[in-house]
Design a protein around this nucleic acid. Structure first.
Lengths: 175, 175
DNA sequence: AGGAGCATGTAAGCGGTTACATGATTTA
DNA sequence: TAAATCATGTAACCGCTTACATGCTCCT
């Protein structure tokens, strides 16, 4: 499975970045299928520095902590390409929501409806975020846009499903 | 996030099961959104036994190892319901495939097509598995069927997306 | 004869996350 | 004045997975 390291190397292929910048990149592009926290990013960067995949430049700033600017090396580029040649791994999903739906008969209808509505709201929010991102950057890199469209189609299907379920369970209410 | 424990308790609500049975249940019902291995299941069952959420009966068998049959207790039922009252957590996704697509411009077109085709084959297989399961059990518990239909609609959207991409990249070949 | 199915279990490791610690600047 | 942004870092913990160990029976 591609790790946080591959993703970081990929971001650094476009130019030098700080750990903070990288976190922002994660959030505004791949977060709907690949998440990362500071606790994962900073140690990964230091490991990569130690291993010669990146170099670190300390930029002094006034009024805020020094910024560590990381730049990918030739060895880093090679490592990136090598990692992309590894075997494709199946995606990893763990859905709290679906497990609750699966065991739905064990809870009251009101509880079940609350789950559906909460999930619907979450999906709507993700959908707005993603489509907003698409509209905000008309010149988005084509491959990046492909993953965005993938996300949109997934969320749209989820929304259709959840709306249909809400309708169905509401009909059952008067029965 | 609901853990492997909640899922196991849920399965045991319907009747006593061995660790092996539970693994089979995972695979034939929730594996498209919640996976578990023996290394997770057995230790969880022993913890739950220690904590009084289940009881263990050893069934002697000839020609194969003893079977440990686990039965949920009243405390176990309470724990299950309590866990279902916890806050709904967002789903967890990590997609190796989409990260590769995202960085697609760094690989040759042939490599990219190989990824698309491999992903298409995987999705088709999952689709056949799930729809086969639906046909095989016409009397499937309604809530269980809901999660199956959710999975089908996700896979169908994925297949549409990947087929469209394959078509697009093939068109570009003669350009 | 070989593989799938039945059946259990543990140790080591992984790949992170969560929580904590710190603090100035800018925006609402 | 409160929250968000910028900026870094570590320690403890989690919840597993992977690999290993064992061995009979049934089906092909």
């Amino acid at each position: 499975m591609l790790s946080i390291q591959t993703a970081i190397l990929g971001f650094l292929m476009e130019g030098s970045l700080s750990g903070y910048d990288i976190k922002t990149r994660f959030e505004s592009s791949v977060s709907h299928f690949f998440e990362a926290s500071f606790g994962g990013i900073y140690p990964a960067l230091h490991r990569m520095d130690r291993d010669g995949l990146v170099t670190k430049d300390v930029i002094a700033q006034d009024g805020r902590p020094n910024k560590n600017l990381f730049t990918i090396t030739e060895a880093g580029r090679q490592a990136f390409h090598l990692q992309l040649e590894s075997a494709l791994q199946p995606e990893l999903i763990r859905s709290d929501f679906l497990l609750r739906v699966f065991f739905g008969r064990h809870v009251a209808r009101e509880q079940f409806i609350r789950w559906l509505e909460e999930e619907r709201d979450r999906v709507v929010e993700k959908l707005l975020n993603l489509s907003g991102l698409g509209a905000q950057f008309p010149a988005m890199e084509p491959y990046e846009r492909k993953t965005l469209e993938y996300g949109l189609s997934q969320y749209e299907a989820q929304l259709r499903w959840v709306n249909q379920e809400i309708e169905q369970v509401r009909e059952g209410e008067n029965g």
